[in-house]
Simulated assay, not measured.
Amino acid sequence: MSGFRHVVMFRWVEGTTTGQQDEVAEKLGELPGVIEEIREFSLGADAGVNPGAHDFAVVADFDSRDAYLAYRDHPSHRAVVEEYIAPIMAERASIQYET
């Protein structure tokens, strides 16, 4: 495989509800149907196996760095971040790398 991968992990603020977390997952899960540059997309809540883990992660694969940048800046992605993620985000960690 040759391409570009984006991995992001979140910790939610204390008091974040299951409903809010489900809404984030639902809204992010709609993006592959809207943003054609997404090649593969996986997301999920932490399984609770190890202490100190982040609460939620997204792994997205793209054909190129430019395709990732199109996703990053896409209005639908920005709307999900601003409307659903930012209000409950306590911490974010991300990495992007060539595959």
Score class of each variant (00 low, 15 high):
Met1Ile: 04
Met1Trp: 01
Ser2Ile: 07
Phe4Pro: 00
Phe4Thr: 07
Val8Gln: 05
Val8Leu: 02
Met9Ala: 08
Phe10Ile: 15
Arg11Ser: 14
Arg11Pro: 14
Arg11Gly: 02
Arg11Thr: 14
Trp12Phe: 15
Trp12His: 02
Trp12Ile: 05
Trp12Val: 12
Val13Leu: 03
Val13Phe: 01
Val13Gly: 08
Glu14His: 12
Thr16Ile: 11
Thr17Cys: 04
Thr17Leu: 13
Gly19Asp: 15
Gln20Ala: 10
Asp22Tyr: 03
Asp22Cys: 07
Glu26Asp: 03
Lys27Pro: 03
Leu28Pro: 00
Glu30Ser: 04
Leu31Cys: 02
Leu31Gln: 03
Gly33Phe: 01
Val34Ala: 08
Glu36His: 11
Glu37Ala: 14
Ile38Ala: 02
Arg39Cys: 10
Arg39Asp: 15
Glu40Cys: 05
Glu40Lys: 13
Ser42Cys: 00
Leu43Cys: 00
Gly44Ala: 00
Gly44Glu: 02
Ala45Pro: 09
Ala45Cys: 14
Ala45Asn: 11
Asp46His: 01
Asp46Met: 00
Ala47Arg: 12
Gly48His: 12
Val49Pro: 06
Asn50Ile: 09
Pro51Thr: 14
Pro51Gln: 14
Gly52Ala: 14
Gly52Ile: 14
Ala57Tyr: 03
Val58Ile: 14
Val59Cys: 03
Val59Tyr: 04
Ala60Gln: 06
Phe62Asp: 04
Asp63Gly: 09
Ser64Gly: 12
Ser64Glu: 13
Ser64Asn: 10
Ser64Arg: 13
Asp66Ile: 08
Ala67Tyr: 03
Tyr68Ala: 06
Leu69Glu: 14
Tyr71Phe: 09
Arg72Pro: 02
Arg72Met: 15
Arg72Glu: 15
Asp73Val: 08
Asp73Gly: 05
Asp73Arg: 07
His74Met: 04
His74Tyr: 09
Pro75Met: 01
Pro75Tyr: 01
Arg78Asp: 02
Arg78Met: 05
Ala79Thr: 13
Val80Gly: 04
Val81Pro: 00
Glu82Tyr: 11
Glu82His: 10
Glu82Leu: 08
Glu82Arg: 11
Glu83Leu: 08
Glu83Ile: 00
Ala86Ile: 10
Ile88Gln: 08
Met89Ile: 02
Glu91Val: 12
Glu91Ala: 15
Glu91His: 12
Ala93Glu: 05
Ser94Trp: 06
Gln96Phe: 10
Gln96Lys: 02
Gln96Glu: 13
Thr99Tyr: 11
Thr99Gly: 02
